[in-house]
């Protein structure tokens, strides 16, 4: 199996009207993660032309920001309330993609993103051959990151993919004493680019970075 990974950094809120505004009803009422996922797809963070058999929405932080804004408003906003369900983030993404299919929304802080990857590794097979794991996280100030990972059952990774991660059967037999968190994963991804660098995802899987563009 191969995992293609990409992310888009964006600012939110933004005064710009997105290119996909006609596809999403009331796009201006989306929260930051919902906006980011739609924007990242439209900017082709993943190579174009691929269709997932399933989407896993890994919503780290749940809808905390939106919950707070809803609670603090003098007049409860119905459009803001529906975005307090983290699964609703899948809607604008599906509208921009023109896609329908099974969606599972995970919430497992501080392991939400890694839970998405782990569960995708368990779900991906010949009947479910391409699973996308998507999510968004705040960076600093008004900056966010929307991240997409595309897990393929067969090794048909796209040569234009920016970053590949290879899931490996773990050599570890013992359960973790300290389970790695999403923060550990982002740190590994961003700082440790040595060719043989691995990240112990679970007692069953390691992840190894492989830069498709590296000579």
């Amino acid at each position: 199996m191969r995992l293609e990974f990409a992310q888009l950094q964006y600012s939110f809120p933004t005064p710009e009207v997105p290119s996909w505004s006609a596809k999403v009803d009331r796009w201006y009422q989306l929260d930051a993660p919902a906006y980011g996922l739609a924007q990242a797809f439209s900017r082709q963070v993943l190579p174009a032309g691929h269709v997932p058999s399933m989407i896993l929405l890994a919503s780290a932080g749940s809808s905390s920001e939106t919950d707070f804004l809803f609670a603090k408003a003098d007049v409860p906003s119905p459009s803001r309330f529906v975005h307090t369900l983290p699964s609703v983030r899948a809607v604008p993404l599906m509208q921009v993609m023109g896609w329908q299919g099974p969606v599972l929304c995970f919430q497992n802080d501080p392991f939400t993103w890694l839970t998405g990857i782990e569960e995708a590794l368990g779900l991906c097979d010949s009947t479910n051959p391409e699973i996308w794991i998507v999510g968004a996280r705040p960076l600093d100030g008004s900056n966010w990151s929307a991240h997409f990972a595309r897990l393929m059952h067969s090794d048909n990774s796209d040569p234009s993919a920016r970053l590949l991660i290879e899931p490996l059967k773990s050599r570890k037999n013992d359960p973790f004493k300290t389970r790695p968190t999403d923060a550990d994963f982002w740190r590994w991804l961003e700082t440790d680019r040595a060719p043989e660098s691995t990240f112990a995802l679970s007692s069953e899987w390691d992840l190894r970075q492989w830069d498709a563009k590296a000579p």
Binding site: P92, Q95, P102
Partner: peptide
């Protein structure tokens, strides 16, 4: 069976 459609939110 699990399925989702991006029709409308509510």
């Amino acid at each position: 069976g699990l399925d989702a459609e991006g029709f409308a939110v509510t």
